[in-house]
């Protein structure tokens, strides 16, 4: 890779991103611009996948909203993401939690919580 491209990318990469993983429940604070007003909208759900490297990385957050599954893909380093908050750490054995899509009811939001023992 060209060093200039590395420089351009490193300028845009956010350094204060918390280390979240697939299976974690997160709150994504997104900047929403309405007219000339800017406000923060919070979207929370389970991270069901992470994709890409460096500046080009995304993550997908799934939640069930009024009985309807919703998935949003966020570019991690987008300036429209104000903050990512980790609500709950999950313990999963898959890199992509696509199996949650076929689940109904409570099991659709169930991801085993990461215990202190397994984290250590």
């Amino acid at each position: 890779m060209s060093t200039i491209i590395d420089k351009i990318e490193s300028e845009q990469i956010k350094k204060d991103i918390p280390a979240f993983r697939v299976g974690d429940t997160v709150k994504v604070h997104t900047r929403v611009i309405e007219g000339d007003k800017e406000r923060i909208q919070i979207y929370s759900g389970i991270v069901i996948g992470r994709k890409g490297t460096g500046l080009n990385s995304n993550f997908t957050v799934r939640r069930v909203s009024y009985g309807e599954g919703v998935e949003r893909v966020f570019p991690i380093h987008s300036p429209r993401i104000a903050k990512i908050e980790i609500e709950r750490k999950g313990e999963v054995r898959r890199a992509k939690l696509n199996y949650l899509r076929t689940r109904k009811g409570k099991s659709a939001t169930m991801v085993k919580e990461k215990s202190e023992k397994s984290a250590a």
Partner: peptide, 21 residues
């Protein structure tokens, strides 16, 4: 042509971009 990357503008919009020396 040096290569491609992506660039966010001040409004947070993303563009695919080519870097030319």
């Amino acid at each position: 042509k040096l290569g491609m990357t992506r660039v966010y503008d001040d409004k947070g919009r993303v563009s695919t971009a080519t870097v030319i020396e």
